[in-house]
Structure formats: C-alpha cells, structure tokens
Amino acid sequence: MSLRYQRLLLIILSLILIITATMLILYNTRENISYFYTPSELNYSNIKINKLIRIGGFVEKNSFNKVSSSTFNFRITDDLNSIYVNYTGILPDLFREGQGAVIEGYFQNEKVFNAKTVFAKHDENYMPSSIKSKLENSGYWNKNY
C-alpha cells in the first residue's frame, strides 16, 4: 500500500474514532441535551417540586382559560398525558389551542405547573394563508396543523 493511502486510512480511522467518542457522549447525555420534557417523559423520578424545568407539547383543545387580562391557564398535552399550567404574562403571537408550545417554569405540586416563560413552537409546514381558507371552506381542514 502506498504512503498516500496509508495516510488516507489513518485519517478515516481517526474520524471513525472521533465520531464514536462524540456519539457515546451525546447518547449518554441525551436527557440533558433535550430542551424540554414531553408530558409522557415526566414521571415521579424527574418531577421535582420547585425546580426550574421546561415542558413541551401541544396546547390542549378547549383547555385554555383566561382568568384575567394577563393570567391564563391551559393544559399541555402530547395526546397521551397532559399537564395543567398556570401562567401570568404575555403570550407569544403564535400561541393558541392546538399549537405547539414550550413552557419554562416549575411544578408547584405534582399536578400544577407554574410557568415563568412561554415559547410558541411552530411546525415545519408552510402554506399560503389563501389556501387555508379554501381548505376550510371545502371541509378538508382537519389536520392538526
């Protein structure tokens, strides 16, 4: 084998080692890298009362209540489990029922989550607003956009 292919082999082997090492680190720290927990990922082991965490999911349909002009409560769901959230503050424009959201805050007790910050999450679908109204008129608007 010529010298240049020995060097090529060395480079490729080093790259494989670096990739393996990085993947091992990332795999074993995945819980910390994830930005939020979904309601189903939360269980008794990682619900810590009064500790700042983030939860994410969809704002459950028909769960949104406006208590006062800046106080709201709603449920965050991933279709399997849901969490009751209290929030005082300004909601982002995209925030609405059925929309994805990430909530930063802490559990007041095992059932109630007090939000400090609310982020709206938008999905990877892009569609002109004119088409949406057409779909609604023809009754095809049933997907959870």
């Binding site: 995945r30 890298i33 994830s34 930005y35 939020f36 927990y37 979904t38 994410g56 990430v102 982020f119 999450k121 938008h122 999905d123 990877e124 679908n125 892009y126 569609m127 002109p128 088409i131």
Partner: peptide
C-alpha cells in the same frame, strides 16, 4: 432531541411540506 427549533421541511424523503409558491 426535543428542540424548540422545528424539524426539517425539505430534506424529508416524503413530499416537502411547503407550498410550491413558497
């Protein structure tokens, strides 16, 4: 991982979920 950033629109093997006009 769970991220605030949404997943890819174009690189999916399925049809891209973006309208042709965009």
């Amino acid at each position: 991982w769970n991220t605030l950033h949404q997943p890819a629109t174009i690189s999916k093997l399925s049809k891209p979920s973006i309208d042709p006009s965009m």
